[in-house]
Amino acid sequence: MRRLPVYFLLDTSGSMYGEPIQALNNALSGMINTLRMDAQALDSLWISIVTFDREVKEIVPLTELAAFQLPEITCPQSGPTHTGRALEMLYQKAKTDIIKGSPTQKGDWKPLLFLFTDGKPNDLQLYREMIPQIKSLNFGAIICCAAGKLADDSLLKELTDTVIHLDNADSATLKQFFKWVSETIEQGNKSQGTGETIALPPPPSEINIVI
């Protein structure tokens, strides 16, 4: 059976403390519940969650949706945003997780990556070093979500063409965003030309795609 691996990289740095992390938890749980009711997703979706602040943690290793349990995501009251280190861990995990097709092995669908951040990388050098490596994994789509005024769209643009800017990280906005994420995930398991990337569904009006 073909798997659709989806990675979530979530910023849990100090600035997320309080309401934003609450809103993120609610939105994620809403998204998971939506996906659970999607026949296609229940059959093929595998999810991994990595959080990053001062530390980078794989809080859920790549797990099939049917067996998936979302833990409460917490964050420290203060601390830096180690986006580069998060990409580094993602690269290592994805390289071993993802099954490539061969004459004797069914390949996964192209994996998807969602990166959610409300700040900018404090480890900028490592962040930039990791970009070509992440790109070499040939994701079906890399989608970065920058929430709030402090998130740096232009740095995220170096990682992907698809940067979504949310003006704030309140519950309603995040809910909308993750609803769109689940729609995007549902696009992930379709046949396409070699080398082509997946077509993203139109975002809801609350969401700005940074061009």
Partner: peptide
Amino acid sequence: LDVGEYGGGTRF
């Protein structure tokens, strides 16, 4: 068959 490293990738 035209198959790629990932599922669903093919030629038309």
